[in-house]
Design a protein around this nucleic acid. Structure first.
Lengths: 196, 196, 196, 196
DNA sequence: CATGAATGAGGGTTCATTCAT
DNA sequence: CATGAATGAACCCTCATTCAT
């Protein structure tokens, strides 16, 4: 078995266990057992529980940042950009449920993660989001009388609210529900909830 | 010293410590020391760390539910109702910062709290919020082509996003910022972000 | 309520709880609650858990010693004396089940009780029993080629074995079973088990 | 040092400490210190105080059952069988004093041990003993007008009484005393105490 | 690379006992 | 007499981490 295989086994096991039990209730022994390796090996590769957790979270942030960058630089319709951001979360929910669950329950609002370092990660994502909003304003699509960081908070807050419902309720996500969710969020975000 | 005094001392100390360290990193000894009482007295009154935490969280949910009920039954303008909901959070942030901080970091999205019981509390609050949205639709104020539960998620998600920023960044809240925040949220929620 | 009443309530409650949970697993709070008094009062009357236990055990030894003395001094048939000793245990089992249960499980062979003091109590009872055996030998009823203390151990060991079965299995004791037990023990003790 | 060595060190230490202090007053720290190993290693191998105790008690029951089975199946004189049973206890007293002491004070009549599981162990030993008595009756050696389970209770009760005296008094056991004890018990059990 | 035996500080909790009222 | 709030030493157990093999 190649080196990478074992490392991946451990990371996958860690994803599953962190998600099931939360960071604090996760035992290194659980992870090792789930990965089918000795727990010495977990230390061999990752050094500590915290490092292992950080590796996972780092992975999340990197895909998140990358997606935001892509949307920022893409030439799509502004509305499509927003939809793609929402879809990113729904895609992750469908394909990396452990990862997004950990993000929701252990990272996003967690005192465990919110050391200065964690807060910086969080703010960087908001800043990227804000830049997209600024672009929207520059293009004349978004109104200019509301601060772009308000929009960024609002937008990402709304997405997280929807994702949290899915994650905490462990709810299934059909293609249809996915599209309804995307449309619902974009609709409200762009047009508001007032009857015309 | 009356019985209630000591109980309150303990609850206040617990609020402070849970907020500072998070549930998992809170030591019962810290709480006792902070409250200036003996170790055993905390157990005399509360039985366990979990119960003590639940007492605090219960207090949060009760004020939250009560406020939502009040807004639902009030005859104010619909917009005022929404503003009052936002103000509730900002008021709590100003006056019970430990409590709202615990809500944000240890309850709202926390795997620690999200047992079935916790999820039920969460859903009840969303349901109350949804009822208010339904009223808004009936009054002809809110559009009817977006489901009221979408609106509820959206609205509370947005509020929580703003509050989280305050809590995690431990940011000061001036009267001016307070009003800007209320207006920003209501503005976007009702009218959306599109330029006209 | 007279002073004695409360004291008795406490002793009765202690009997029940010590029997149910054993000495080590008994909490003073359990006893107080069962007695319907505050636990300060238990200390007021008895000073400590150990003292309370000793009061109960003392009660056992006193009735036991008294019965043995009575049998020693009585002019009954020797066989009746032995039968009366057995009957004493069976009577206690029927009428003071908590007390005899505590004797069996917490006193007779218990390391908890077997401090020097406990051992002395135990030996005094064996000595009394031995005196009865010596009388039996003097009367020419018991054989003289077996030491009377052997007989005493043997006899009381046999009784305790039967009583233990009842106590540990919490078995009912009909009048018929009672007589069969008495006869069985006496029969074997006097005549042995060999076929003639 | 081989794995088994440390495990044995721990079991031996546990035997000594359980015997000296009794189950309830035994501290896991005492056992670890006595064994010369760290605190955690006891848990590494045995998981809990209760499990460690059970391992020891299981060891007792197994040797006891095995001995009874051997005697049941042996072709010795019936009287020799009985003598061998008595000798088993005396041998244990001489060679595994901690084990037999624990049996007497913490198992045989202990409320701590007498859960349903414990009672079952106890009854199995009585049942084996009874089978031997039944054989004795079938061979025409034992009288048939006394139930075999009476005999079993009687016999094992008598042995335990003698052993308890030794254990609780921590008495030395010379070869001579050993033989006197064996003969005394067998004598009374078979021939009774009546003068002829 | 890989194992798992070994460590030990630290945590939550218990509970006999005291004492002010 | 009677209460129960208050104390705090002590205990069982956990678990991240180390290290010899």
């Amino acid at each position: 078995m190649a080196k990478n295989d074992k490392q991946e086994l451990i990371v996958d096991a860690a994803l599953a266990v962190f998600r099931e039990k939360g960071y604090s209730n996760t035992r290194m022994a659980d992870i090792a057992k789930r990965a089918g390796v000795s727990y010495g090996l977990v230390y061999h590769y990752f050094g500590s529980k915290e490092v292992l957790f950080d590796v996972i979270v780092e992975g999340w942030w990197n895909s998140y940042y990358q997606m935001l960058e892509e949307q920022k630089q893409s030439v799509s319709d502004f509305e499509d950009k927003l939809a793609n951001i929402v879809r990113f979360f729904l895609y992750m929910y469908a394909n990396k449920p452990d990862l997004i669950s950990i993000f929701v329950t252990e990272v996003s609002r967690s005192s465990i993660y919110h050391t200065a370092r964690g807060l910086a990660k969080f703010r960087k994502s908001l800043a990227l989001c804000e830049e997209i909003m600024v672009d929207g304003q520059k293009q004349g699509i978004l109104r200019k009388d509301v601060g772009p960081h308000y929009m960024a908070y609002f937008f990402s807050g709304a997405i997280e609210a929807f994702i949290s419902i899915l994650v905490l309720g462990n709810e299934p996500l059909s293609k249809a529900r996915e599209e309804r969710t995307v449309n619902g969020i974009i609709q409200i975000f762009l047009n508001g909830t007032l009857a015309k």
